[in-house]
Design a protein around this nucleic acid. Structure first.
Lengths: 171, 171
DNA sequence: ACCTGAACACCGTTCAAGT
DNA sequence: ACCTGAACACCGTTCAAGT
């Protein structure tokens, strides 16, 4: 059995579990059961629950943002990404909650957020004056974190987001 | 021993523990030890950890927002409130995380957020056109939730907040 | 190197027994 | 009505023992 392959299997299960039930649905027992292993065996690949969760969460987020459809407007593209991420609200809130305790979690969160922020900035670039780009990106980014933290309807998320973008950027 | 008084003692300890270390620092053992009780005794007053946490969190948030200083501008008043709440970031993220599982937690969160939203709307009223007030309040509120979810410096929080308010409201 | 199964620690929750 | 102390269940983590 190849080690990388086994890790892959674990992360695949972990990503599914975490997307469905968040941090507390994830347990070494659960993973071990689904893979037909003893609980202790999973520790051979992941030394702690935080490491296991971080890898699973990263995979789940990656999967949610892969295969973006071709959309004509930058607003539609941002709305799409936010909707995708909002299906992982449980993962997001836990990531933010646990980042205070776990350096690994904090690092993962920073990586994810850095990437999202870069993408957002690239989308906004053509619609915001250069000297305002950083400030607008920063504010919209924080706003999106808020959207992802709150239990809103799809409709409300989109309404708020469109309003803010209309106020801060050109059509 | 008066029941209300005992609950008061428990909540006072709980609020302190929760403000310092969040949800996971809070335990029935911890409370019981600090009050010289057996672990099981605390269940006589709070039937679950979520109820205990909800009451403690509500108290901590209340305490953070009491005694506001007199500030001249509405921006300064909002900045102050956000700074106060940001000291309870751990409480906030946990509240949002656990609201998915616990009806009690969801209700508390809704109550707190409703109150904050009303206050925010009242502050914005004189600086935003009436037909825009709801939309602006909504967006700023979500934005503030984002500020409270992220590990930012005091300086960044204030900078982002002032920029957004300058864009959406009159001086 | 990888896995098992038992063990330990901690904690939320319950409960029989006391006052 | 309030409290104690033991018990149970679950889970993260460790580890001696196996292959």
């Amino acid at each position: 059995v190849d080690r990388a392959e086994k890790i892959e299997e674990i992360v695949a299960v972990g990503a599914r579990v975490v997307a469905a039930g968040g941090y507390e649905a994830l347990s070494f027992s659960r993973i071990a059961d689904e893979l037909g292993l003893a609980r202790g065996a999973v520790y051979w690949y992941f030394p702690s629950k935080d490491e296991l969760f971080a890898a699973s969460a990263a995979r789940a987020i990656d999967a949610a943002l892969s295969h973006p459809p071709r959309l004509r407007t930058y607003v539609a593209r941002i709305v799409w990404a936010v909707e995708q991420l909002s299906t992982l609200r449980a993962v997001h809130t836990t990531l933010q909650d646990r980042a205070r305790h776990s350096g690994r979690m904090a690092a993962l969160l920073e990586g994810i957020q850095g990437e999202l922020r870069r993408r957002l900035s690239a989308e906004l670039q053509s619609h915001v004056a250069t000297d305002r780009l950083d400030a607008v990106t920063g504010v919209v980014f924080v706003f999106i974190q808020g959207l992802l933290a709150m239990p809103l309807t799809r409709r409300d998320r989109e309404r708020h987001l469109r309003f803010l973008l209309a106020e801060l950027a050109d059509s």
